[in-house]
């Protein structure tokens, strides 16, 4: 870099750029937060959905699965599992773990009661109705 371009100029670009783009980010965040209610259907977040998310977190489901494409890549996407499998299958699946099939990836047994199973399913149902711009590409997730 040549001599007419000084360190002070570089520093000013840094501070100016950082402040400008952070403010722009805040503005975009404000707009996003305003427009989310139409996309996340928060009117459907019932107490059961809230409890379901809590169960999802305290069993660390994200440590094996993705949810809307984020998480671990060891086990199937669950953001759309409600649409793929339906509520009864999901509950039976969770209750039936682990499969114990030799050499196959195993999911733990969480000993959830009936209400907890319903809560998880309700959370996954609500999640599957979020407007994700048509992601995932197909039902397999």
């Amino acid at each position: 870099m040549n001599e007419t371009f000084t360190k002070a100029m570089a520093r000013n670009i840094f501070y100016g750029g950082a402040v400008f783009f952070f403010l722009l980010f805040l503005a975009l965040t404000f707009d996003t937060v305003q427009s989310l209610p139409k996309r996340d259907h928060r009117e459907n977040i019932t107490d059961s959905v809230v409890r379901g998310k809590h169960i999802w977190e305290t069993r660390d489901c994200i440590g094996c699965h993705t949810l809307l494409g984020e998480g671990a890549y060891f086990a199937p996407e669950l953001g759309n599992v409600y649409k793929r499998r339906g509520p009864e299958f999901i509950k039976a699946w969770i209750q039936g773990q682990p499969t114990g099939a030799p050499g196959r990836r195993q999911m733990p047994q969480f000993n959830l009661n009936d209400q907890q199973l319903d809560d998880v399913v309700n959370f996954l149902k609500w999640t599957s109705e979020i407007n994700t711009n048509k992601w995932p590409p197909n039902i397999e997730g």
Partner: peptide, 14 residues
């Protein structure tokens, strides 16, 4: 900073 947007494609954001 705005590049954070590459995580906002499919999680319900506009």
């Amino acid at each position: 900073i705005i590049g954070t947007g590459h995580h906002y494609f499919w999680i319900g954001t506009p």
